[in-house]
Computed example of a mutant assay.
Amino acid sequence: MKTNPAPRIAIIGAGPGGLTCARILQQYGITATVHDRDAGPDARDQGGTLDLHADNGQIALREAGLLDEFFRLARPEGQEMRQMDSTGAMLFHHVPDKAERFKPEIDRSQLRDLLLNSLNPGTLRWGHALQAISGPTDGPRRLHFADGATIEADLVIGADGAWSKVRRALSPAAPRYSGVSFLEARFHDVDRRHPDIAALVGQGGAAAADGERGLFAQRNSGDRIRVYAIQRVPADWITASGLTLHDTDGIRALLLDRYRDWSPRLRRLIADNDGLYVDRPIYALPVPHTWERNPRVTLLGDAAHLMPPLGVGVNLAMLDACELALAIAHRDTVEDAIHAYEKTMLPRSAEMARLLDGGAEQLLSTELPDFAHDDSH
């Protein structure tokens, strides 16, 4: 970055996008602080596994100097994919070659730890929940946090996900419910305690659908599997049924009734789980989501372009982060950097959002999805 003095950069959100941006900036000697609402790195579950693609997520890790370490942690065997019908009959089965590295799997928690451990001490500010942004459009911007703290920044980067507070400084848009909801079930010590489920899922992912409902199971590291029951239901379907998330037996009985025509083997994916279910209704931003350029504020990842969970979210967030960090490093001013970054990011995200608009419905389709025909899933 050629600006003198160096700009004060505040990144809101310590997910993969925000951390990748901070790491690449530090690779160029540029300081940024990352503020996150969580009390610490272990405050909540980070979710299941994801695949990082060679044409986006891995590009960002290479620029961050972390690609070799990523491959040491990743699971190439996690690229295995099975597609079945509701009777359990196999429709498609991809077994990756041992050298296949296009999109190996890694647990979200492992990826986050890889990025966190790469940052300079003092980069993270935990327990900083952003409430609002004030100050003149041309800066500096003032950030107000829930604990009463305030800071000034010359550049505010919103990497704070679906319900971004930073987005409010740029756009009135809010995520809309897609009409499709995931209910997560977890299995632990699967090879010993759930061998039939382990054999059904394999080393990667297994999916099935009947047009109205679906199941998607993912192998995680540590001998764990996460399963998602996918349904076209109201967002409040659990409370509307007179249940709460703590009523595991009641939810299980409801699911078994809804999947009553499925094979007993597949029904075990939603009935033999360890612990509580986790409700994950699927939201997306309007398509396309754009805003008038602001010389001091920008967005990346889900804050900019929340889409259905079809394998692109984290990859796009990390590519956004990489391109934004490089623009900051190579442009004379913050305003020039934002202009260069958004000139590429906004059209790319709009195109992808159009392709995936309503895509949650694809997860219920009996037709073979794209991963049966090409290199994406």
Score class of each variant (00 low, 15 high):
residue 298 T to E: 06
residue 33 T to H: 15
residue 76 P to L: 06
residue 300 L to N: 08
residue 90 M to S: 10
residue 369 P to C: 10
residue 181 S to N: 13
residue 363 L to H: 02
residue 261 D to Q: 05
residue 80 E to C: 06
residue 83 Q to R: 07
residue 105 E to I: 10
residue 7 P to M: 05
residue 146 A to F: 09
residue 224 R to N: 15
residue 326 L to H: 11
residue 65 G to S: 00
residue 253 A to W: 02
residue 157 I to L: 10
residue 162 A to P: 01
residue 288 P to I: 04
residue 218 Q to S: 08
residue 99 A to P: 06
residue 177 Y to V: 07
residue 170 L to F: 08
residue 132 A to G: 07
residue 269 L to T: 10
residue 315 N to S: 14
residue 168 R to H: 04
residue 166 V to H: 11
residue 163 W to I: 01
residue 141 R to M: 10
residue 214 G to T: 01
residue 325 A to G: 05
residue 78 G to Y: 13
residue 362 Q to A: 12
residue 296 R to H: 13
residue 349 S to R: 03
residue 172 P to N: 00
residue 138 D to S: 15
residue 47 G to P: 14
residue 47 G to T: 14
residue 174 A to I: 00
residue 121 P to A: 02
residue 101 R to L: 15
residue 211 G to Y: 01
residue 245 L to K: 06
residue 255 L to D: 07
residue 30 I to N: 04
residue 231 Q to Y: 04
residue 32 A to G: 02
residue 348 R to P: 13
residue 324 L to V: 13
residue 182 F to W: 14
residue 190 V to L: 03
residue 178 S to M: 07
residue 57 G to C: 13
residue 6 A to L: 14
residue 51 D to T: 11
residue 129 A to S: 06
residue 300 L to G: 07
residue 186 R to Y: 01
residue 341 Y to H: 05
residue 100 E to V: 05
residue 48 G to H: 09
residue 135 G to M: 07
residue 356 L to P: 14
residue 205 G to C: 03
residue 124 L to M: 15
residue 19 L to M: 11
residue 331 R to F: 14
residue 199 A to T: 01
residue 129 A to P: 00
residue 188 H to P: 00
residue 181 S to Y: 13
residue 191 D to R: 14
residue 196 D to K: 09
residue 46 Q to E: 05
residue 58 Q to V: 08
residue 43 A to V: 00
residue 211 G to S: 03
residue 183 L to K: 02
residue 202 G to S: 03
residue 350 A to H: 00
residue 135 G to D: 06
residue 140 P to H: 06
residue 12 I to Q: 04
residue 127 G to W: 08
residue 297 V to Q: 02
residue 36 D to A: 10
residue 23 R to T: 12
residue 225 I to H: 11
